[in-house]
Design a protein around this nucleic acid. Sequence first.
DNA 1: ATGAAAGCGCTAACAG
DNA 2: CTGTTAGCGCTTTCAT
Lengths: 348, 348
Amino acid sequence: MSRTTIHDIAKELNTTAATVSRALNDHPSISSTTKETVRRVAQKLNYQQNRAASSLRSGKTFVLGVIIPSAEISFFGSVIHGIEKVAKSQGYSVLLFQTNESYEDEAQGIRTLLQSNVDGIIASIAKETTRYDHFLEVKKRKIPLILFDRAIDELDVPAVVIDDYKGAYLATEHLILQGYRRIAHISGPQHIQIFHERLRGYVDALKAHHHKIDGDLITYGKVSIDSGRLCAEQLLNLPKRPDAIFAVEDFTALGALQAIKETPWNKPGQIGLVGFANEAFSAYITPSLTTIDQQTARMGQEAANLFMNLKQEEKNLADPPQKIILDPVLMVRQSSIRSKNGSKRKKQ
Amino acid sequence: MSRTTIHDIAKELNTTAATVSRALNDHPSISSTTKETVRRVAQKLNYQQNRAASSLRSGKTFVLGVIIPSAEISFFGSVIHGIEKVAKSQGYSVLLFQTNESYEDEAQGIRTLLQSNVDGIIASIAKETTRYDHFLEVKKRKIPLILFDRAIDELDVPAVVIDDYKGAYLATEHLILQGYRRIAHISGPQHIQIFHERLRGYVDALKAHHHKIDGDLITYGKVSIDSGRLCAEQLLNLPKRPDAIFAVEDFTALGALQAIKETPWNKPGQIGLVGFANEAFSAYITPSLTTIDQQTARMGQEAANLFMNLKQEEKNLADPPQKIILDPVLMVRQSSIRSKNGSKRKKQ
DNA sequence: ATGAAAGCGCTAACAG
DNA sequence: CTGTTAGCGCTTTCAT
């Protein structure tokens, strides 16, 4: 009545559980005829391996633990997609935990993953997390740990991130090439690394193209629609007003767009706008938003690949951890196409 | 060197593994002093339970298997969020599988979940799936199975869905109450139940308010942006053209909106538009899209709750499976606010 | 190429 | 209240 085990198969074939186990695992020292018959009987009896037993004995679970702030955020949903895809292709399952940006939940998640004997952990650190003891515990147990998006240099583990500096540089340069002359930037809190990097990219792009850096044209918002709107209003009311805005991410850009639309002297196509993140809505608003794509699914895939590679060559544990920096991709849409003043329209 | 086990704790305390196990599991017949000391030593030795061993013995894994088409679709990301939240609160972990809408992947996912001895499975069926043998296998093994969104009556298992009929009724009625007189509908393939239900809701709402049903005003698209655009163009070119459109879901509505904007005789606010799904972009497009919210995170929570309830009262296995039908919520935004002809503006 | 025996770490039944 | 014993189902030496 109860579930078929390898002993049932062994009995049916007058052999032993060991042979059945080896046959099913394609062990080299089993004749192909035996493998064949074992597989046939296994199928007949509808046998399914008991992974708990297998992993208890072998120490391997073929489970990959994934820790993210929230599956509800499209960025992370996309990354999970990429991770699970690669994991599955290599026979791994994904055990998922959300932290809700809380250190406590994150530590609890790590604890559960350790109890589950996962073969590796892929994580994006919670905003609240400032202590890394839980991650150090993972390292101590020699369980492969890979970070993505929000990496921590201090932990000294492999990571996949995108090049925020370069993304911002591309965005700014695109506006320059479109012919905009006074390009403003709405940034975010500078203690968060990615926002600081994006500001650097903005500044360096301007410098490289011999534009002056004007402190008035740089504002620091709180990374939200409302904040983007307020910052943009402030910029558009300057005596020497900007003719383009690079926003630190798409929601900020969305707020800025609202402000732009309500600006009396603005004509469509006059004020350029670029965001960052390629959020789901960005292609569908009016005008559609030029932005920087972060290659989210790819990020997940690369993270999973990093894990697979680590497994392969467990030898070089002392090697410096690999860091993959993904190239951001400029998505040119309507919001940054300069349409008047006879400026030359640069094709991208 | 290697990981702490209950035997290590037992040795330290001159007691036995059984006692330690019971103490850690808060077994009633252990004195509270013993529990206390055991817990202290466990903490000191940094003990973490080995779940594989525990579940091999006890038969329970505290793992919930979740099968979805793709984590990249925001709908499913949101549902996962709800499921994991409830699961975690009850000590369960979530093992995630994506089907990519393929029957093969779905069957493979079920197989892996069975091998992993999950305590229950929550699934949304792949579009391609037409045979249910894999799900029947789950039932046969008496593993609780809960479906969401895309339920299959034939399987006779608990499910959480939203009331598509009611959602469509609400959407249509809202347009009627706004004062629109000729309300069209862009539907989808009728062999897919949800689209058929939405069509029924549309028709019944019109009937209930003594509007005529005009076959010309009902088109059948392919549920995409492009298809929505084409269908809307066709509708807007009718001799007796509609003054409002209810689209079967938000992407269709988005395409329809493009067509509306390009209609020469249209003035903003003249043609009403309602979508369905409350996609992430719907609040941010111009005009913002009135739509039907499907309570996605709630759907996940309810599905997880259904599982938890099943676990509690394993007695009534013969009872008819519970079906939870969530109420859709009308999200009124700009696209459906009637602004001219002195119609009374109905507040919702 | 296969079999015998042991044991992964835990929990549960039975004693006391 | 605690100890003894056994065994969940599998893999892995070690033998042959």
